[in-house]
Nucleic acid binder design. Structure first.
Lengths: 196, 196
DNA sequence: AAAATTATGTAGTGATAATTATAGAAAAGA
DNA sequence: TCTTTTCTATAATTATCACTACATAATTTT
């Protein structure tokens, strides 16, 4: 049996794409509902029928982001031959992501919710958890680096992993401050000194 | 002739101190006027009579911050014997500031205005300009380090300066994410590798 | 074709938050 | 004392923004 009732007048996947771009460009709190609906070309009731609420739309957008636009750094981390190359590639991919952002730049997972309002706590924690996961993946890659002989046995893996997590946060902040690709790439060199 | 009219019922300097703490703890956008007035113990009309608006109160608070609670890192930068010691002391002082923050932690100049709302653009630019000034002072200290022979002539000063600016931003972000002093100090070591 | 079901558009509703009008209180000057 | 000046408190006012009630449109099922 086919779907009952009046069919949706827009493509939900395409709409989610637009939603992600608006949230990415402006962050959760600054992205107003009328910007979201205007970007899609629908009115509020259609938005709520399709996505439930601003918050649940954001959660969906984050999942889409992780699976698409924001996947570069983690992919680069896995693809690098040595630990050093992997870290370097991850940081360069972060720069790509930060500069590919629609407007104000930066990574959605890092700048998407700045906890400007008290009620955004759960979303802030959601992104915080994802950042933590990122650091965990870096940690795993460094462990592999030690096992492969890329890094000395004495490497302080937890410290280095959270350090590179911090570098990625810094890249996003600087991108939001308007840094150029050159300026962002200049951050990568010094940070790799910690792997020598 | 003495001051005419009913005298102010509260200490303006003390009130500004409170205002700074609230803005520091919650950021510009999340700090609501009733929190500000409640912290001081006054009502809105008194606040507006004394400070003009939320925005101008914030500007005053930022100036107070730079002159007091937030002065540590720049002071440490000037006091360090060698360039390496100065940078290290600055980063450690940044950690002190980030952890001394009233509530959600981090540096007011870094996290005070995250541009969640479009109308906060001017304040965002104000803080951005101050961050730029910080990097300029780091640059000057590194130049002196080269002149003193602390650092090789080939040192890429602009790159390193903005790199350490980025590290301070990262310290604030991680502090806001709930990092402990130990975790923050762990970021300093790797970042100093760039000065070897 | 009629009923059932789901989407859409117009035009609100309700909550929140910065700001202020108005009246009254506390001081100095005449 | 009485006027002038400045501060304070209560209670609006205004704007913004997420969200929705209601009527209507477009489908499928019977």
């Amino acid at each position: 049996m086919a779907i009952r009732g009046r069919p949706r007048g827009f493509d939900r996947d395409l709409a989610l794409q637009k939603i992600m771009e608006v949230f990415w460009a402006k962050g959760y709190e600054a992205a107003q509902l009328n910007e979201l609906t205007a970007a899609i070309g629908i009115t509020p009731p259609s938005f709520y029928a399709a996505f439930g609420s601003k918050e649940s739309a954001f959660r969906e957008a984050v999942n889409l982001y992780v699976a698409s636009a924001g996947s570069g750094p983690m992919h680069a981390l896995d693809a690098g031959e040595t630990a050093q190359q992997a870290i370097r590639a991850m940081l360069l991919a972060s720069i790509d992501v930060a500069l590919r952002a629609p407007q104000s730049s930066g990574c959605l997972l890092i700048l998407g919710v700045m906890n400007c309002q008290p009620e955004t706590g759960p979303l802030y924690d959601l992104l915080k958890g994802m950042r933590k996961e990122t650091v965990e993946r870096v940690r795993a890659r460094l462990r592999r680096g030690v096992a492969d002989g890329d890094l000395p046995q004495t490497t302080d893996i937890p410290t280095l992993a959270s350090y590179y997590g911090a570098i990625m946060q810094a890249i996003s902040m600087q991108a939001r401050d308007g840094a150029t690709r050159q300026e962002l790439e200049a951050l990568v060199g010094p940070s790799l000194a910690a792997l020598q």
